[in-house]
Amino acid sequence: MHGPDLVSWLLAALTAASGGYCLSRLRRAPCAAVAAPAVPGAVPGARRGAAPGRLHAHEADLAEGLMGFGMATMAVAGTAVPGEVWAWVYGPPAVLLVLAAARWPDRRAHRLHHAVGALAMTYTALAMSAAGGHAAHHPAPGSPALTGALLAYFGGYALWSGSRLLSGSGGTAAVASAGLPRACRLSMGIGMFAMLLTM
């Protein structure tokens, strides 16, 4: 990522902290937060229903943790990591998320949002890699239309997420359970917007 070094390091610190928080939630979140659909003859609490519950409870945290640490690394390392590496890191999860969104309607919007984020990370990395050694002096040669569409998406997402965060109410427990995750999503939306803005 090209731009002032201070901005890159601040972006890296913000997204790494957000990613670390999301991954730390994996230990605290219940393993069966969302119950699996009832199956005739199944024993309540059987192992069959635990795996879908665990997937639903931790899927977003895993995706957001991967996104946060990826943005932090990209902001600091720039083109030191080849774009193809990022494509292999983010491409398969994006495909899996799209397939899961098509197969299961619950949490479809969340899965599609994370898929867009993973594809945006891949696109940004490949564009920066294509710029080569001139990335520090010239914009990355991405598609202006695609860059503009992603900027509009993440800018809109940041505004929407920020408005939800500001409109939230409740005590300390409510802030911890809903406010911090929303703040992390907001920071990563802003981070993705900032990375795209430098292209």
Rank of each mutant, 00 (worst) to 15 (best):
G68V: 09
E64H: 13
L151V: 00
P139K: 12
A127E: 11
W9R: 12
P181K: 07
G78H: 05
G78A: 13
C22M: 15
P4T: 07
H58T: 15
V81K: 07
A101K: 06
T124D: 12
M74E: 14
F193R: 00
R164V: 00
L96T: 06
A29N: 09
A127G: 08
L146S: 03
A36E: 08
G53E: 08
W160C: 09
A63D: 14
P82W: 02
L186S: 05
M199V: 02
W9Q: 00
L146T: 02
L119K: 01
H2G: 15
L165V: 06
W160P: 00
R48V: 13
S169C: 03
A29Y: 06
P181S: 03
L150K: 02
V95S: 05
T172Q: 12
Y21T: 05
P4G: 02
G148A: 08
A36L: 10
L6R: 13
A135C: 10
R111V: 09
A118W: 07
L10N: 09
A51G: 01
Y157W: 13
G148H: 13
A118E: 00
P144Y: 02
H137P: 04
R25E: 10
V43D: 11
G171E: 00
A145V: 15
R111C: 11
V98A: 14
S129N: 11
A145S: 04
L6W: 01
L99E: 00
S167A: 08
A29V: 14
A87S: 15
A127W: 00
M192P: 02
V39N: 00
S24C: 01
A158D: 06
L146D: 05
R27P: 02
A16V: 12
A149Q: 06
R107S: 10
A13G: 15
F193Y: 06
G65R: 08
A12D: 03
M1W: 09
G19W: 02
L26K: 05
L126S: 06
P40F: 03
P37I: 01
L6H: 06
G83P: 03
L99S: 03
A13N: 09
A17Q: 10
A94D: 08
P30A: 08
P139W: 12
A29E: 15
A194E: 10
T122G: 06
E64P: 00
L166D: 03
F69D: 04
G148K: 05
A63Q: 04
A80K: 04
A100C: 03
P141M: 01
G162L: 10
V89C: 04
H113T: 10
V98F: 11
V81C: 09
A149G: 01
R28W: 10
V34K: 03
A109F: 09
A152F: 00
G65C: 07
G83R: 04
A125L: 04
A60Q: 15
P139H: 11
A100M: 11
A194D: 07
H134A: 15
L165W: 10
D5C: 01
S18T: 14
M128T: 13
P105W: 09
W160T: 08
P93Q: 09
R48T: 13
L62N: 04
W104I: 07
H2D: 11
L96D: 06
T124F: 12
P44D: 01
L112E: 02
G20Y: 05
I190T: 05
V34Q: 09
G83A: 07
V175Y: 13
G155Q: 01
L23T: 11
G170I: 05
L66V: 05
L119W: 01
V85M: 12
M74G: 10
T147G: 07
L14T: 15
G20W: 14
S161N: 08
